[in-house]
Design a protein around this nucleic acid. Structure first.
Length: 346
DNA sequence: CGGAGTCTCTGT
DNA sequence: ACAGAGACTCCG
């Protein structure tokens, strides 16, 4: 028994019946407050004769990501993943995956698709599906609703999508890119000198829609993990202009994020030798332009076009947005058109 | 890449 | 009659 000799006796009543509990606790609990750390992992204490509150939060490992689940909010607190060139290569297809209730969670604590349906909010991945092209199972796992938060759809497919793309592109400069993502509930409404945190809750499950999302990016090379380049970002969960490409606009310090989340991320990271990602990265945390993404969309549309009409609409979309055609797209269009001609002739 | 909504079919 | 799965179409 790892207790001291300073046992005390507690007495009380439960439903009229007398109970007597002998409680032993370490000497340091008797010390003055502030002079020593209070041990919190001891289940017995004078103030908690029936045991200290237990925490339902749990950390779960999936095929490609690990998350800490917030039972009360029915969404993750943080989600961790590691990107490499290899993990981004492959044929896994998100069309094969389905959003679904996570049966690994405690009974009744998972959000449902019904909560999100017609809510006006999209189902935003924290660990991104596109980060697991190499493994269909890993991609499928990201579709568990344990990895999902209510996200503004324009933010999701726009700025946040560009941020995820930025993380993937970092694998061209670093062996490994470690990413932690999660929701935040921050002041988003100020009236006079009063500040408010206002957020919607959706569905029968009353799933809260976060005001912000955060992402911590730590990129390093295999041989020198002590020279990690790291940065953290807090992005409001609202549409963000396509013109914004400076990720530094949303950069915060790790210390700041610690106070916002209550989690100390990367506690082992030696801060003396790490560098700021937005300085080390040769792109200086500059996101790809929206035009580049439009070009990418067009490429896909042409590639899977079933008729000339599909190609035309893709082209019109680009012209509407004043996006310059690059050579790859032009040759892709030519290729597709001859392909379609052969199809009609046969 | 990131999503949504609608329709049809099927099983209870 | 209603719920879920799958195919299909659409958007940024």
């Amino acid at each position: 028994m790892a207790t001291s000799n300073f046992g005390i006796l507690a007495k009380g009543f439960i439903s009229g019946a007398v109970f007597t509990v002998s409680i032993s606790y370490p000497l340091y609990l008797q010390q003055k407050r502030g002079t020593a750390p209070v041990k919190t992992d001891d289940a017995r204490s004078p103030l908690f004769p029936f045991g200290k509150p237990t925490d339902l939060r749990q950390v779960i490992d999936y095929t490609g990501h690990t998350l800490c689940y917030d039972v009360a909010r029915k969404q993750p607190l943080w989600v961790s993943e590691i990107l490499t060139k290899e993990s981004l290569k492959g044929r896994a297809n998100r069309k094969q995956s389905k959003f679904r209730v996570d049966d690994q969670l405690p009974e009744g604590t998972s959000a449902t698709n019904g909560d999100y349906h017609k809510s006006g909010w999209s189902r935003g991945h924290m660990a991104a599906a596109g980060n697991f092209k190499s493994n269909q199972q890993a991609m499928d796992d990201t579709f568990y609703l344990s990895n999902i938060v209510p996200q503004n759809i324009d933010n999701n497919s726009g700025f946040w999508n560009r941020l995820e793309t930025y993380c993937r592109d970092l694998t061209e400069q670093f062996d490994k890119v470690h990413v932690i993502s999660g929701p935040l509930y921050q002041v988003n409404d100020i009236v006079g000198d009063k500040k408010f945190v206002k957020y919607e809750v959706i569905g029968d499950g009353r799933v809260p829609a976060p005001t912000h999302l955060y992402k911590i990016v730590a990129a390093f090379n295999e041989g020198s993990p002590e020279r990690t380049a790291v940065a953290a970002f807090v992005v409001p969960n609202i549409p963000i202009s396509r013109e914004v490409s400076e990720l530094t606009k949303y950069e915060v310090s790790l210390e700041k994020l610690k106070s916002l989340t209550g989690f100390s991320f990367h506690p082992q990271l030696p801060s003396q030798t790490t560098t700021n990602l937005c300085v080390s990265d040769r792109n200086s945390c500059k996101l790809k332009s929206w035009e580049e993404l439009e070009l990418y969309f067009a490429m896909k549309k042409v590639k899977y076009a079933k008729s000339q009409k599909d190609i035309d609409t893709a082209v019109v979309t680009l012209k509407d947005n004043h996006v310059k055609f690059d050579q790859k797209l032009l040759s892709q269009i030519e290729k597709k058109q001859t392909e379609l001609r052969h199809a009609t002739n046969a």
